[in-house]
Simulated scan of single mutants.
Amino acid sequence: MNTRAYYELQAAQALFEKPCSALDEAQTRKMRAVAQRYLSIETAVLGSSEASGVCLPPGAVDEAFGEIAARYDSTTAFEDALDEAGLNPTSLRDALARKLRVDAVMARVGARVPAVDATAAEIFYYTHLERFRTPERRTARHILVTINEDFPDNHRDAASARINAIAARIAQRPERFAEQAMKHSECPTAMNGGLLGEVARGQLYPELEAALFALPEGGRSAVVESELGLHLLWCEQIHPERTVPWAEVRESLCKRLTEERARRETRQWLEDLLACAQAGS
């Protein structure tokens, strides 16, 4: 069956990022089980009353076909992969059309769920306020001098002398921090004046986090060592912890809750459909 071959090809890639022919015995069993599950879902969905009248938009199959073909280095490589999977361009298009119809039916089922209105979303917001709190963040820049005993300029003593000289220049003229980062930092952020962006706790090495979150707004650290090397930090701005106001999340929350409701409805519909199919088999 062309559709089975397509789902086996998809399962092999999704599970193991390999063609079917490269799977070992255990992987093949797993791949075939997943492909069979996909095939059972397809059969049940396309046989449902909800599938009646579902049509694909013009060009949908061609677009899906092109996306798959684009994963390969050449047309020959693509055709070889299809041949190895027991497919050809025509049978692949047929399988894609069925798969896209399944997606369209599932979308139809989800779309019949009524949208979550602002009142329901606001109740959810105020009963789950902890979900709308953003942690304290700090806009920071840093300068890095690495320690590497394989290079004379990066021996510990040399690296320490270099970063202390940078720190001395910045102490005289703090506004030169970004300039000094561009000239001397050995981190890719040097290209942007050492900018780390808005940083929350848990994103930096522990030594850097401790130093950064101990600084006042506008403060600069002493030399800090991490496993990367020696750093200087500048806390440009502190963004305090806050609860995102209802007005800011109203639209996106209504949309998200509606999507979650639609996913639950679709999942339940599919489970019921498969249970009926199994009972009737």
Rank of each mutant, 00 (worst) to 15 (best):
T3W: 10
E8G: 03
L23P: 00
R29Y: 11
R32K: 03
R37G: 15
S40M: 08
S40K: 03
E42I: 01
V45R: 04
L46P: 05
L46H: 07
S48G: 13
S48P: 13
A51K: 01
S52Q: 05
C55D: 08
C55Y: 05
E67A: 11
E67K: 13
A69K: 00
D80M: 11
A85D: 07
G86L: 04
L87R: 00
P89A: 12
R93A: 11
D94C: 14
D103M: 08
M106F: 13
A107K: 13
R112W: 14
V113L: 09
P114T: 12
D117W: 08
A120E: 15
I123A: 15
E130G: 12
E130D: 14
F132L: 00
A140M: 12
H142G: 09
I143G: 05
V145N: 08
T146D: 14
I147L: 13
N148E: 10
D150K: 12
N154Y: 15
R156N: 05
R156S: 13
S160D: 10
I163S: 02
A167Y: 06
R173H: 09
R173D: 10
F177E: 01
Q180K: 08
A181D: 07
M182V: 06
P188K: 03
P188L: 04
G193A: 05
E198T: 04
A200W: 08
L208A: 13
F213H: 06
L215C: 02
P216V: 01
V223L: 06
S226R: 00
E227C: 14
G229P: 11
V244P: 09
A247S: 14
S252C: 09
R267G: 11
R267N: 12
W269E: 01
Q278H: 12
